[in-house]
Design a protein around this nucleic acid. Structure first.
Length: 563
RNA sequence: GUUUCCGUAGCUCAGCAGGAUAGAGCGUCCGCCUCCUAAGCGGAAGGCCGGGAGUUCGAAUCUCCCCGGGAACGCCA
């Protein structure tokens, strides 16, 4: 039982309220001088028929204080608790060292699967800056869920179906060159696609040919299929290079084409359950009762739609993975779409419809408005990654000219800056892509956290630190206390990040640890002359180093030991 | 038009299962390397928390209305 719970049970004994309820009232005071925990008495006023300050006074003097709580003071309507700093430091450090790399983790998930649908690139289209949020948010959630005892299943729901592939084949057969495309990759495919649209304006028969070729893909024609698979392989090869740089892996690339033969059953099932309705020639599920436009299942020409495919995929995933949750890391523009088909799954009678979660995020635009291929203002993700690495390399040459393997560190720090940037704020915020902001390494940025980690490593290295007995009475100064508090707060942040599917809560928790440690570093000499003080501060430094590394790892950022 | 999200310091954002003087970073100005990585640390300036009602002992936080902005709204994904 930790101090917080001890305090709560002492309060429960005096007030008659349940410990659980009291725990939810306990808060952290605005400033550390006021105490480590605060209990507001306002809600007791009615039940006890006394003024809050009087209750606070009474509780402060009458409470049986737990062992590690130094004192309790009444302040206005609050009772402020001051922990025994040494005992708290001991408890936190022991936990960190006992759990090691698993600190902040748990078996909460009990090994259950969590499907995470993220990144989801399109075949034969470039990966641009707009793909960054879904990719890094999804990856962070993947790691966070795993840390909490779930088993994450990363799914890249490829956009690999549709008439555009018929167009690609027509364009390739008319103007394409195998070698040029092998060399140029996706860029060359895009050129063909653009040319197709230009020429099709003057020559509508091209569109007919495209439809015919797409039909051949659908029918499994060997030539059509081999070209289709070739486009796919080319695209994936490039995309996987980007994933390698970002340190991301997927467990499944089952995308649109994969579900092609799995949609009939959805239509049949919807019909059997009496949910389908013919409306203006299309088969729809009426959602007017839920204040939503209808969900279209079949077009009037009988073709399936996006929603049909998503429902088929959800059914497949439930059967295959028996997920505890299935997350869709997709921009908020598709909010209505998800609400619609989630509702359809619910109406189909599947109780797990409640486990389908749209993890939405804001849109990325340029300083001059929305990105669009037509405007030609698209920023390719690859270019952003390269620019970040180059900038970092230059900074390293300037600040740490003697550093070995500058390229590797530059990549870790440059990419770290980018990822951090995407995971620093709540998901829902829109982002205006700005080179200066992305390439800024000062203040609360990825490099700041990595720098703090490297700094801690440097001290430990210099001290030739060996773990050993720690005298925590040497960690009672305000700065060390703040570091202890920040490390102590980390596990709860990880859990909240999972519950809310908000990786930035981990980012902020790491920021808090870094800020506290940097201040500690500045104010207190870690390599103190006194052996006991030195050993205690080194232990705190070691714990800091470890927890920053865990936190960075959870959001998908490397923690180099030198930079 | 309907639905939905957002509106907190010059800028970008935390804080929003209501609580003690509203916090960071960037930018501006001023300090701190004979000492553990200055990608750091400290200080100053800067806010009727979009506006108005209401609920409450107490509202940036909850409810309603208004204003401003983004997004979505049937055969694209």
């Amino acid at each position: 039982m930790d101090q917080k719970q001890q305090i709560v049970s002492a309060l429960a004994a005096k007030t008659g309220f349940s410990a659980e309820e009291l725990l939810s009232w306990l808060e952290t005071p605005p400033s550390p001088e006021m105490g480590d925990y605060a209990f507001p008495c306002f809600r007791l006023a009615k039940a006890l028929k006394k003024a809050p300050p009087a209750i606070a006074q009474e509780l402060a003097s009458a409470l049986a204080l737990p062992q590690d709580v130094a004192r309790a003071e009444a302040a206005g309507g609050y009772v402020n608790f001051f922990l025994d700093k040494s005992a708290r430091a001991k408890a936190v450090l022991e936990r960190v060292f006992a759990e090691g790399a698993r600190y902040g983790g748990s078996e909460l998930g009990k090994g259950r699967n969590v499907c995470i649908d993220y990144s989801s690139v399109n075949i034969a289209k470039p990966v641009h800056i707009g793909h960054l949020p879904t990719t890094v948010i999804g990856n962070a959630l993947y790691r966070i869920y795993n840390h909490l005892g779930f088993h994450s299943v990363g799914i890249n729901h490829l956009g690999d179906w549709g008439t555009q592939f018929g167009k690609m084949i027509v364009a390739y057969r008319l103007w394409g060159d195998k070698e040029i495309i092998e060399q140029g990759g996706v860029d060359e495919l895009v050129k063909l696609y653009v040319r197709f649209h230009q020429e099709a304006e003057a020559n509508p028969s091209l569109d007919e040919q495209a439809r015919a070729w797409f039909k051949r893909i659908e029918d499994g024609d060997a030539e059509a299929l081999s070209l289709f698979e070739w486009f796919k392989a080319l695209t994936l090869k490039e995309v996987e290079q980007i994933y390698d740089i970002l340190g991301i892996r997927f467990d499944s690339y089952a995308g649109e084409s994969f579900y092609n033969d799995k949609m009939d059953r959805v239509v049949i099932e919807l019909r059997e359950k009496g949910l389908l309705k013919l409306d203006q020639g299309a088969q729809i599920v009426d959602l007017s009762e839920y204040k939503m436009p209808p969900c279209i299942i079949l077009r009037s020409d009988g073709a399936t739609l996006y929603a049909t495919r998503d429902i088929a995929a959800a059914l497949y995933r439930k059967e295959t993975y028996d997920f505890a949750k299935c997350l869709y890391v997709v921009a908020y523009q598709q909010d209505l779409h998800f609400r619609q088909w989630f509702k359809v799954v619910e109406l189909m009678g599947y109780p797990w419809a409640k486990d389908l979660i749209h993890v939405s995020f804001g849109m990325v635009s340029g300083t001059e408005g929305a990105f669009s291929t037509r405007k030609g203002n698209m920023v390719k993700l690859r270019d952003v990654l390269s620019a970040a690495c180059e900038k970092t390399y230059a900074v390293i040459c300037e600040k740490s000219p003697d550093l070995e393997d500058k390229e590797t560190i530059a990549r870790q720090v440059g990419i770290g800056a980018l990822i951090w940037n995407s995971l620093y704020n709540g998901r829902i915020k829109d982002v205006v892509f700005d080179w200066d902001a992305v390439l800024n390494f000062d203040g609360e940025t990825g490099p700041y956290a990595q720098y703090t980690h490297a700094r801690a490593c440097s001290v430990l290295r210099k001290a030739e630190y060996q773990p050993g007995a720690v005298d925590c009475s040497a960690l009672t100064d305000a700065e060390a206390g703040a570091v202890i508090a920040a490390i102590d707060a980390f596990p709860a942040a990880v859990v909240e990040a999972m519950e809310k599917n908000e990786p930035y809560l981990v980012t902020r928790a790491v920021t808090g640890i870094c800020a506290a440690f940097n201040k500690f570093y500045y104010e207190q000499r870690i390599l103190a002359d006194d052996a006991a003080v030195r050993q205690a501060r080194l232990a705190l430094t070691d714990a800091t180093r470890l927890v920053i590394a865990i936190g960075l790892n959870l959001i998908g950022i490397c923690a180099p030991e030198r930079m």
